[in-house]
């Protein structure tokens, strides 16, 4: 977790930065003058917490999108490190190469072995490039599927952590069948014999997210988004301009509370006040508090029942009218 002085701030987080600056100034004064102003500092630190609460209480959809992309936000490997022990990262799809945008491997949660899989973003410029900004290629999805099949073979539950701005739209990705890779994952995930929990920990964009996002439980962290397209692309397609992303975000109803209301996800996992980037340990603990009882519950169900439930759950999604039309006569006009 970054030190307070190294933190990065989004525009709407500015008031917090101002408080931090003031605290820093007071500390320096205290050091110089040897005067005790710790009371005042403590008071300001209280205000920081209050500010964090205040700011996140009334976020617009677009601001939530920004928060989900916060540069200080914890990524997949951070959650794995905080939640599990004995994590062993496994590499490669056994076909083409190892996709660095998708990570995974066996780990233990409170002594129990699970398969952890997720998209990984980089923590600095160099790493961001290496991780391809969390945009996986087909080999990433095939690696994920290989690991899921491995977990299935040894009857271990699977937890996927989703954080991607989308599957990578590149030339080689198309050559190697980006669509097929995602399609295969969706299809196979529905049929997996072991419990699967999918957690959106940051961005959940379209097929890139769904490619590791089909499970018995699909949940979102509080300040994340999940929908069919990123607000920027949506704006460029439907509004024919890149400037309507705020409007697009609003219209897409992509926030966790909307998704829960629509019945498209099963639960919202709370984040620390102000967002997961304020306290990695707390964020991971909150997620773990959701995972443990859910894993226990799912393990009691039979594989066949779980599969049936998945098909039924996704089968119910969608909205339509059923109108009464005249029974169509068979068309034999030729």
């Amino acid at each position: 977790m970054p030190e307070n002085k190294n933190r990065q701030f989004l525009d709407f987080e500015r008031p917090i930065k101002e408080l931090f600056d003031e605290i820093e100034k007071l500390k320096q004064i205290a050091e110089k003058t040897k005067l005790d102003n710790s009371n005042y500092i403590a008071q300001l630190e209280g205000q920081v917490l209050e500010k964090r609460r205040e700011i996140t209480a009334a976020l617009t959809s677009w601001q939530k999108v920004q928060l989900s992309r916060h540069p200080d936000r914890p990524y997949t490997l951070k959650y794995i490190q905080k939640i599990t022990s004995n994590f062993i990262e496994l590499h490669g799809d056994r076909n083409v190469k190892d996709d660095k945008a998708m990570v995974g491997g066996f780990a233990q949660i409170e002594g129990e072995t699970v398969m952890m899989i997720g998209q990984q973003k980089g923590i600095n410029t160099k790493m961001r490039q290496l991780r391809n900004f969390g945009m996986a290629n087909p080999e990433g999805y095939r690696k994920a599927l290989r690991l899921m099949k491995l977990a299935e073979k040894f009857n271990k539950p699977i937890i996927t952590l989703i954080d991607t701005p989308g599957a990578y739209p590149g030339l080689e990705a198309e050559e190697r069948g980006q669509g097929e890779a995602i399609a295969r994952n969706i299809y196979e995930m529905i049929r997996l014999k072991v419990p699967v929990i999918c957690v959106i920990i940051g961005e959940g964009a379209s097929g890139g997210a769904l490619g590791i996002g089909v499970g018995d439980r699909v949940v979102m962290l509080q300040n994340t988004w999940y929908t069919v397209i990123s607000p920027e692309s949506c704006s460029s397609i439907l509004w024919r301009s890149w400037d309507q992303k705020e409007k697009a975000a609003e219209q897409l109803r992509l926030t966790s509370d909307n998704m829960l209301r629509f019945g498209l996800i099963d639960a919202i996992v709370p984040e620390p006040i102000g967002g997961a980037h304020w306290d990695y340990t707390e964020a991971a603990d909150l997620l773990k508090q959701y995972l443990m009882p859910t894993l226990k519950e799912l393990k009691q169900q039979s594989p066949e029942y779980r599969k049936q439930q998945r098909i039924e759950k996704f089968g119910k999604m969608g909205f339509w009218d059923e109108v009464t039309v005249q029974q169509q006569q068979p068309n034999n006009n030729i």
């Binding site: 769904l210 069919v228 992509l254 629509f262 996704f314 969608g318």
Partner: peptide
């Protein structure tokens, strides 16, 4: 896109079927 996440979930829905 006008059906937002609902349209995305059709991928899983049809694959399940």
């Amino acid at each position: 896109m006008m059906e937002s996440a609902f349209s995305l979930m059709q991928l899983a829905k049809v694959s399940g079927k």
